[in-house]
């Protein structure tokens, strides 16, 4: 009989018993609802073992790639180890490699990439501030190519961690980061699919990672990146993005400014509105939405109504911390 390792304990599964049924039988407290592979509330991550196709049915590609599976739809035939999504992770310490200003409010933080630190560009990590407060920052670096981790940190007025990063953090300082998590990243397999990337503010960080990852993996479909801010000064990495647009025929960079008259070469209007207006029907497209929560929420619904499949909409809303 196979053994299911979970939360530091081991449970013996009976023949043809699902992982969920096994844990329930052992009075383990876990989430579940439909027990029919539909509601996804019993989703877990398989740390040892390989999820079956049936146990990953309906999950997003990004989750499948991270070995997430539904406990109700998996019968263990060999020993497996499972963990709750996003938990059971150990933080690691690393050094600050470089700090560079991208604009008046945004600092580019490069950290030494710890050994065996794996991630997908666009995922986020939690960085610990001086008193243990944690904040999430998205990864803009290329996992397969850059030997550093790159974060874009906006100085939030009164922000405990961003304020410390902007005013006190120095090169060679030691910081603690969690493993990368999140499902907003590029997945290969459909190189011809058109991609629409919409971001506001430092929502560019994950999108910059995703864009470069897509190019690195030789994505062939059109890639439109809309980056928005209220003023032109709020945008950043403009030259880098213009260069990518110039070099790659399938990359189209659209800087958007929502207030006042924008400088030449920029579009007047909100990034999400312009993107949805200009691209029109989105059937078959893959959409990435990163930035302000209200923007992400409304753009998500509009992209869906414009024909994008829900499975093809990846969203990373920046939810302000409350503490």
């Amino acid at each position: 009989m196979p053994i299911i390792a979970f939360d530091g304990r081991e449970y013996l599964a009976e023949d043809s018993e699902s992982v969920l049924d096994c844990l329930i039988r052992h009075d383990v407290s876990v989430n579940y609802s439909c027990r029919a592979g539909v509601c996804q509330s019993c989703m877990m991550m398989m740390k040892e073992g390989t999820p079956s196709e049936a146990s990953q049915k309906g999950l997003k590609d990004a989750l499948k790639a991270q070995n997430y599976f539904l406990m109700c739809s998996y019968v263990a035939e060999e020993d497996i180890a499972i963990a709750r999504p996003g938990k059971d992770f150990q933080s690691v310490e690393t050094d600050v490699l470089a700090l560079d200003r991208l604009n008046a409010d945004v600092l580019r933080v490069r950290l030494v990439r710890p050994e065996n630190y794996s991630y997908f560009p666009g995922q986020f990590l939690n960085l610990q501030g001086p008193d243990g407060t944690e904040r999430s920052y998205s990864l803009a670096s290329l996992a397969d190519g850059d030997d550093f981790l790159e974060l874009h940190v906006r100085h939030i007025p009164g922000g405990k961690v961003s304020g410390w990063i902007h005013t006190a953090l120095k090169v060679d300082d030691r910081v603690s980061i969690s493993p990368a998590t999140g499902d907003c990243f590029y997945t290969p397999g459909q190189p011809g699919q058109n991609l629409l990337l919409i971001g506001t503010g430092t929502g560019l960080a994950p999108l910059y990672g995703i864009l470069r990852d897509a190019l690195h993996q030789e994505h062939q479909g059109e890639i439109h990146l809309y980056h928005g801010s209220s003023t032109a000064e709020g945008l950043y990495l403009i030259d880098e993005l213009k260069a990518l647009d110039a070099v790659h025929t399938n990359v189209h960079y659209h800087p958007c400014v929502s207030q006042g008259t924008p400088p030449a070469g920029m579009t007047a209007g909100r990034a999400d509105q312009k993107a949805l207006e200009e691209t029109g029907k989105l059937g078959g497209w893959r959409i990435y939405l990163c930035g302000r929560e209200d923007m992400v929420k409304s753009a998500r619904q509009k992209a869906f109504l414009a024909g994008a499949s829900l499975k093809d909409i990846y969203a990373d809303p920046f939810v302000p911390a409350v503490d």
């Binding site: 439909c34 029919a36 539909v38 509601c39 996804q40 309906g58 619904q301 829900l310």
Partner: peptide
């Protein structure tokens, strides 16, 4: 939440299609 809503829609359709549901 659109993801939760879609999961509910899916459960509803499965039921309406005469499929397995609880």
């Amino acid at each position: 939440d659109m993801d939760k809503q879609a999961a509910k829609q899916k459960a509803f359709l499965t039921m309406a299609f005469g499929g397995p549901n609880s």
